[in-house]
Design a protein around this nucleic acid. Sequence first.
DNA 1: CAGCAATTAGGACAATTGTCCTAGTCCGTC
DNA 2: GACGGACTAGGACAATTGTCCTAATTGCTG
Lengths: 210, 210
Amino acid sequence: MKVRATRDQIVEAADRLIYEKGFEYMAFADLANAVGISRGNVSFHFKTRDEILSAVIELRFGRTRRMLEQWETEGIDARERIRSYIRIPLTNRTQVLRYGCPVGTLCTELAKLGHDDLVQASRIFGLFREWLGRQFTDLGLAGHSDALAMQVLAWSQGVATLASAFHDEPFVRAEVRRMEDWLDSLVPGSGRPRRPRKLRGRQSAPARHP
Amino acid sequence: MKVRATRDQIVEAADRLIYEKGFEYMAFADLANAVGISRGNVSFHFKTRDEILSAVIELRFGRTRRMLEQWETEGIDARERIRSYIRIPLTNRTQVLRYGCPVGTLCTELAKLGHDDLVQASRIFGLFREWLGRQFTDLGLAGHSDALAMQVLAWSQGVATLASAFHDEPFVRAEVRRMEDWLDSLVPGSGRPRRPRKLRGRQSAPARHP
DNA sequence: CAGCAATTAGGACAATTGTCCTAGTCCGTC
DNA sequence: GACGGACTAGGACAATTGTCCTAATTGCTG
């Protein structure tokens, strides 16, 4: 109980630091300072920085899994569930504009380092991939469900990257809208009423899509 | 002349190190070792690491500008020029699978740090953006040319991110193909013959697009 | 060849890094 | 109330960091 309290605080602080600054910038001293304990105490709970990284990945993995499970019980239909994913960059736009996607940026850093935990980190992508694949299968697109899942993943990753590079919030809004329109057009016969939208100047119908 | 030789070697090595390992992992000692000179010599040419970063960004900016200029004189038509851009992740697939996109990953890192040079680095994205916008205008899509440019940028960024996270070369091939098909479908009346393609199992027509 | 600035090597420097070690404090269980 | 293991603080430690300084060497110019 006691150990969990401190340990969890360390992992929590590491989670935030890794997201906001990157793994390499997460120093033992920073963690100790953030939690308000001594560096030696951090060392007691985690012998190496890699151990902390593993704990953070595990934390994110569990959180993502639980979130997707909740979406699966909450969402009215598969389309609405996919929409929940599509809207992530919009929901978290403040952070995304500053730090990008937590999963994507971590995987990018670990890939550069050839770090062993890249495999573990990319499993978080794997969660989204499988979940999205199931939703597309529910939509009657079983044959292409995994390909579609990868496409949606890549799309939102690209949006996150450009959004943080240009600090462009309207772009995020426009792309999320485009993704939703694309989703609606995927299975047009599904009967869901296309709610009318007021077109705003900037994102006025930029071509059929991709 | 002499100073240029050593200085350029340093910038060249920094360019490679930043791409392969990330900016924070580029140490003076690494640079000195890579070029085969002393650390003090590196310090003579660049007082701080940030100065090296600026030089690397400038180097990449110039190279990109020259490449795009060359494409603009070489390419038969705008569509073929856009295709050149679309195929970058395929052309450089070995590096992209390992280290992602040089521009995107650098911007991501600098955004996290709140580094001043993020603005400069994102200007490289700006070069592609403006260039692509011009090509789309040439294609007769003047009204949406900038939006389309951003879409293509984001698309290839997403592909690069997922490709390096999953080390998935077939995914790169499939997405590049999808982007080319999308490009061909953008202006169907343009008369360019749609060359027939042998469909391969994995990427068999995964939905209309995005 | 002399002179001078540009270039280089090598080390000094304080600061910070990850990791380890030791001594102490806390708290639940006999 | 004493014991014992979990927890914590604080510092030691070598290694590495970016930056700076000085002396030696290079190579061009006169």
